[in-house]
Write a protein that binds this DNA or RNA. Sequence first.
DNA 1: AAATAAGGTGTAATATATTATACCTTATTT
DNA 2: AAATAAGGTATAATATATTACACCTTATTT
Lengths: 71, 71
Amino acid sequence: MTSAQYLVLIGSNISKLRKKNGLTSKELGLRCDIEKSNLINIEKGRINVTANTLLKLANALEVEVVEFFKF
Amino acid sequence: MTSAQYLVLIGSNISKLRKKNGLTSKELGLRCDIEKSNLINIEKGRINVTANTLLKLANALEVEVVEFFKF
DNA sequence: AAATAAGGTGTAATATATTATACCTTATTT
DNA sequence: AAATAAGGTATAATATATTACACCTTATTT
């Protein structure tokens, strides 16, 4: 798997979990202090997200970070 | 858990897995094209490692990325 | 004891993640 | 149909991850 594909899968998982929680991009961004544009790029797998950002997202979505890596 | 503590735990897991594989910092760095100084900072939890770097390390250590997040 | 290897630090340069903001497009709501 | 909300894009500024390299310290080996 290429790193690009990998980032797309992680982003897809984040997106699914956000929707499962009934949150908009803006709401999730506010909840964990992540800029909306950044969040959208992460969900699309366009950027190389950092560990801290993954942790903030996991906390806001009330899941463990490993959930983002399950595929 | 603070993000700083979190990075230390991830780094500690990477360090353990590297030693388990009998690799030096330099060797692991060469194997996955990560600068030795960067790798040492990651293992110490001093920097906010990115997803791609975690993937490269996991491939080189022949584990899944989730192994780094188990604590 | 000297030589070597390993871990680790420091610094400058580069790449890029993240912020902040404005705007656009497309659903959804009224 | 108009208004609103949501997703998405574009750009500039800032912060920082990563590289590249030199050097230091401490084990380990010879």
